[in-house]
Amino acid sequence: MTVSPAVPKSWYLPSKPHKFCPGCGHGIVLKALGEVIDELNIQDKTIFGCDIGCSLLSWNFFNCDSTQTHHGRTTPVMVGIKRSRPELVTIGYMGDGGGYSIGSQHLLNAAVRNEKVTLILVNNTNYGMTGGQMAPTTLPGQKTETTPYGRDTDVTGYPTKGPEFLNALTQDDAYIARATVSNYRQLKRFIKNALRNQIEGHGFSFVEVLSTCPTNWRTNAQQTLHFLEDEMEKYFPVGELKNPLGKGDK
């Protein structure tokens, strides 16, 4: 008897195997998202939108209607779609550069307006696609192509804590969480809650996912996990900051 590997029904198989680097966390996030789309049975009404950067490689990842835009602009495109067709489930997928830097004004204003979209932001502490430059999330002292001697907080400030600032901007009907690819079951639960929060009409839903980038971190498997679990998770606390669905739904 052969057992096929479990592939979410909502994945678009002709685009597999996917194009992310070995060891990259995007595949884990997108697997969790695919399983959630299946479990919520929303494949036919999902609009998946991706940004520029590594997240772009997911433009044909799902067997769902998908669109793609410029760096940082996924949020307004998804807002335009959701406001036009509230029955659709809109998922914006972006990196830390797109969300917290070039698209930060869109992100914070969408949160303030309680736009009923779900945004998933993958935080790997650098700009991966462009070759490993400093991101808003680069840790103090971390070496990148534009901080070759380590991030100097006197010069470039401290890492952006996205869920924390969005938590401060939103009301009780928003869903705000930070997950990590090191805890798959929790990651999937947070993504599911974020989508349910949109589907049930509560409001803005946001999940930051701590992820890995061994290519640009120049780390082996052990070092990669160490950086994620011991460095990143220490600086960026994992958990739900706001969950309007109630404790019983977790």
Partner: peptide, 8 residues
């Protein structure tokens, strides 16, 4: 960009 989303 919201116009781009709406027309799509």
């Amino acid at each position: 960009f919201t116009v781009c989303g709406a027309v799509q």
